[in-house]
Design a protein around this nucleic acid. Structure first.
Lengths: 250, 250
DNA sequence: CCAATAGTGTCTTTAAGACATTATTGA
DNA sequence: TCAATAATGTCTTAAAGACACTATTGG
């Protein structure tokens, strides 16, 4: 590639990850504690540099596996599979005090992990409820006990959460938060945790089982929620929901 | 910034623009003819390098003004104002044969320009119907009279068009294609051109005038479309439409 | 027995889609 | 006059939301 390298300004390109899951009825994001300056000791989104011969999505998948051990499904929209998509790119000239860094943020939706995050130190990697992560900075509580996220990661996280909230309306992505087999009630609790609202179990059941291609019954049942045994489902082939699941009005 | 510059791989960062407008009942995109290798003589999306101390949106706005003379409204969602938003980022290692280039694509929606594109040579900058730009490559007609777009710009254009098609469903962005004052019929023809479908004028009128905050009557009327004089409107303050305008089923 | 969750049905309201009709201009 | 477009109204159907009721487990 004989092309004048001085003719263009040099940038560093990174990927940052908004990794979301639902744990104990709450939407949680993966954060890592920074061990070096700047923002030493602060929580930040996982991420890292894109390698010279590596695509953006590949870099995001590699960082995800390095931080969490999670493997991304190649074919998108599979039941129980981890979902990864590009979110947005953040390139403010002052977003990193060290140098000019353009970060391509990615959104990851994963089912709740039975084991703690593998491949990471529990002291430096953890799941945190997005509500607490986002509310801290809104109150400008820079002096509070738990300080704000590093860099512009508050905005990136907010954008990722809003993307997830809106995408489960018209796509089948909510199943990415569920294990391979799940009940209608478990799926409803995913919607309730992501949206932060209570949904009518009866109307939800009617809607979700009436949307073609959304859910496929596996034949099995489970009582892991207590009460009457519930049918087990897996995600159907549909990626777009018609009619969509609509969030209750504000 | 004393930070080891050799510790990270160098990238070039560019912005590419998908500039859309509606002309003569057709959705059109701005393309420029390349004057140099690679892809010399091919049509491509306008774009260029991000400057060292320039934000991504600022770079997109600058390139837009350089290529077309269009100025972006600062406050988004204004009537008659040009709309600019980030679309997606394309960073395949092989997308540019000269070097590693990551391009942050932006989407621009503009009203039809009475004057031809200013600041550009008519031989090298033109509006082209997106249908013809997109259909060419689908047929793998590399040997056809009008060759395919340069680089991965076919995919970028397709993504931008799909973004515009879906966004006018649930947002008031369709007014960005209209002059500051417009009639319901003109707005309907925008929807018809972007979606490529025919809409019922009566139901459209009822929906669009019944959606709160979408349209504000200015009091004036016009007969520029022929027939009975039509009320003139400007865009209301609403950015999100509730209920949304839904595309007819496929 | 009771508590808890699953699943089905019914009613009301809202909105989409099909289509009739009247209104107001220019040629 | 007619052709063209604007604007309003009516009817049918689909779907959302509220809520009653029955079903099936564990304790």
């Amino acid at each position: 590639m004989p092309y004048d390298p001085s003719a263009y300004p040099p940038f560093a390109v990174t990927v940052d990850l908004v990794v979301l899951t639902v744990r104990r009825h709450a939407l949680c994001a993966l954060v890592v504690r920074r061990g070096e300056s700047p923002y030493e000791g602060r929580w930040a989104l996982p991420g890292g540099f894109v390698q010279p011969k590596e695509g953006l999505a590949a870099a995001a998948a590699r960082e995800l596996e390095e931080e969490t051990g999670l493997r991304v499904h190649e074919s998108a929209g599979q039941s129980g599979g981890v979902h990864l998509e590009q979110l947005a790119t953040y390139g403010d000239p002052d977003r990193d005090p060290r140098m000019r860094v353009v970060s391509v943020a990615h959104l990851v939706l994963a089912p709740d992990l039975p084991a703690p995050v593998s491949g990471g130190d529990a002291q430096t990697v953890r799941w945190a409820p997005v509500e607490s992560l986002l509310s801290l900075e809104q109150e400008e509580s820079r002096e509070a006990a738990d300080p704000a996220l590093a860099f512009d990661h508050h905005r990136i996280l907010a954008d990722g959460v809003e993307r997830a909230r809106s995408k489960i309306e018209y796509s089948a992505l909510a199943t990415a938060f569920c294990p391979p087999e799940f009940t209608v009630g478990e799926l409803r609790r995913v919607y309730e945790a992501v949206w932060g609202v209570a949904l009518d179990p009866r109307n939800f059941h009617r809607k979700v089982t009436g949307t073609p291609g959304f859910l496929v019954p596996t034949g099995g049942t489970t009582t892991r929620q207590g009460g009457r045994p519930a049918q087990l489902f897996r995600a159907g082939g549909a990626t777009l929901l018609n009619p969509p699941m609509l969030r209750p009005e504000v």
